[in-house]
Design a protein around this nucleic acid. Structure first.
Lengths: 199, 199
DNA sequence: AGAATTAGCTACACGACTGTATCTAATGAT
DNA sequence: ATCATTAGATACAGTCGTGTAGCTAATTCT
């Protein structure tokens, strides 16, 4: 807990980091709607007044915390392994979705009051550019190399993997196992681009 | 607005109906976390005290309102038209998801405090038994009739349609058009059961 | 060592929501 | 017409969060 030396008071970066951690934990517990300056301050062991010196509302604190998180990592298709790269892309997505930042973003996007105001601003900054397309990156890579026709990559097809993982998260509340990810790739994505069962 | 005669005071069923309507609207605007007896009462034009005579908290009012909604309609596969029945099943799902009840359920399920407590209880009562399986009903019907192998109906495959519609709702916030539903069926569901493009 | 920053502490007035209590009066049943 | 039921109105004390202000003291800079 305590840092080096006998300092009793945090300032600057150190304090801000503690506050950022505090909001992110707080929002997971109570949701965006129940965020309060008091609650954030309590958890960070700092008085409310200190928070007001920097932010004007709990949501401002939350957004600031999110902007300081690491952006989403992008899949990097490598070897000649479409199936493996798709699975890895979905695993990357799962990991992000279960990170503190991922769940905090979900909390914002599902709150009726905050969602409308800033869903675009948020995705842009947190997804760092045009991120958030996990399987799409992989699909394009292999289509470009002639493994299948690029025409097959429709908006619907590009969403299949992410949609199924998202639904799994919503239904079960937990991350999909590797077997589930494999099933999604084998039974849903690959068939859509021509590698499926025959009627 | 006014019913028959010059009654100035609602009672019983009529009043309860107005209150149910009130919570459902309220929760869409402010979310579960910001539901208050005051807010519900204000919208229903009834004092808070009347609410306390029947319910002990805003969430109780909400759940009671949901239990009085019509349960989810189930798809009824009819003619010899797998594709058409799948599209109709997804349209049914879309309609429910956009009903007041559907969105209220979503609000509860995404609220960290309420979700954990009652997600199962809710789905059971609101989905009336084991409902909520829109495309699955249709898929089973046609697999039973030999249109394709029942082995292909894995949990993942059964979820494809619902997952893509859900993702569309989350991403765009609006209901998918008929063209989108057709694309989902043609480009994602049918390929998974053997009616797809060839590699 | 002295000065400038900035965090911690306390207090205060304000508003929103909570439960409860009490009274009034509209409604429906007999 | 009378009565039991039940909704509407009002009041009140209590809790929690809000912003703001003013002071104290720890930390860092020069």
């Amino acid at each position: 807990m305590g840092d080096h030396s006998g300092r009793t008071r945090r300032r600057g970066e150190e304090l801000i980091k503690a506050i950022h951690d505090s909001v992110l934990e707080e929002v997971l517990e109570v949701g965006v709607a129940r965020l309060t300056m008091d609650g954030i301050g309590r958890r960070a062991a700092t008085p409310r007044t200190t928070l007001y010196r920097r932010w004007s509302s709990p949501v401002e604190v939350l957004l600031d915390a999110l902007y300081h998180q690491h952006p989403v990592e992008e899949p990097t298709p490598g070897a000649d392994d479409l199936r493996g790269d798709l699975i890895r892309a979905l695993r990357l997505m799962t990991e992000w979705a279960f990170s503190r930042a991922g769940r905090a973003v979900a909390a914002i996007l599902t709150d009726p009051q905050s969602a409308a105001l800033m869903s675009e601003a948020l995705s842009e900054r947190v997804f760092a550019g045009r991120g958030g397309r996990f399987t799409l990156t992989v699909l394009r890579h292999y289509a470009d190399r002639g493994h299948f026709s690029a025409e097959l990559i429709t908006p619907v097809v590009a969403d299949i993997g992410e949609a199924l993982v998202t639904k799994h998260l919503l239904d079960r509340g937990g991350p999909p196992t590797d077997e589930t990810l494999e099933a999604i790739v084998d039974q849903a994505i690959l068939p859509a681009i021509g590698f499926g069962p025959r009627a």
